[in-house]
Nucleic acid binder design. Structure first.
Lengths: 148, 148
DNA sequence: GTTGAAATTGTAGGGTC
DNA sequence: GACCCTACAATTTCAAC
């Protein structure tokens, strides 16, 4: 799908505030509300927009520890491990990557000892290297094409 | 801020679809629309809700390569490097972490050679270890407290 | 928290280029 | 096909309770 400037503007506006009304978006990009609604619907149908969501401050919710775990899965254990973590709400994100480690995950927990328990559980499936996140200087940046 | 069950339900609903109307959320949690609006406003003011946003499929936007770069910053270069990457739209996320490497970043680019250029630019500030993301088995999971 | 009224918005229809 | 306009239903918002 080719995106024109207006669609990129709509995506930028929605990234900054997904609850903007179609009317307000329309005022920004020079379109009527129905025209914006139709464009957004097509962006959803095409899958470019995967989900309207909300960014939470996990620290304020009592989940103060973020960790990044690099994980080398034992031979033959990949499928069962992926199934295992898909049901763990502490595993916020998991990426399969090239390089020495197979997986890089981001976890969110309340206390250090929860992390310890999880690392113990993981040890059945492979070898983990854990880093605690101290801060996130860049977090979920608004994505836009800055060229044209 | 202490969250009751209703607020957790609201946060779960909004994570799944940030454009739900307050009226519809109210029907789900047994409140009137103004009551929901007031709760959501307070969640925003308290900073628990950082932003209403939208999850995009970067691949469909032509940005097919995600990479995770572990980065060991040279002594005294941290501040200038953080400023440098804050202006790069390819750096989607950056975490400062414990362990051998100082920073773990996620980048999104269109083509491999863009990544090469970025790694070259980074070499002034420190040493990078790059992994290409092959797939993301878990991505931006909906976060909720599953207890009580 | 609720209810009710006014302003705004979403949405479906028909029409234009 | 993409857009606009119109009209009606739904929602937001603000008041008073």
């Amino acid at each position: 799908m080719e995106l024109d400037k207006i669609n990129w503007s709509i995506l930028t506006l929605l990234q900054e505030n997904a609850r903007l009304s179609f009317a307000e978006i329309g005022r920004n990009v020079g379109l009527s509300a129905p025209a914006v609604a139709e464009r957004v619907l097509k962006l959803e149908e095409s899958g470019i927009i995967k989900r309207f969501s909300v960014d939470l401050d996990f620290e304020k919710l009592g989940y103060s520890f973020k960790a990044i775990i690099s994980f080398k899965v034992y031979t033959g254990k990949m499928q069962s491990f992926l199934k295992f973590i898909s049901e763990m709400h502490e595993v916020y994100e998991c990426n399969r990557v090239t390089g020495e480690h197979c997986l890089i995950m981001k976890l969110i927990v309340q206390k250090p000892n929860e992390l310890e328990n999880i690392i113990n559980l993981f040890s059945d499936f492979g070898e983990s290297t854990t880093s605690i996140v101290l801060s996130s200087p860049v977090e979920h940046k608004v994505f836009n094409q800055n060229k044209n």
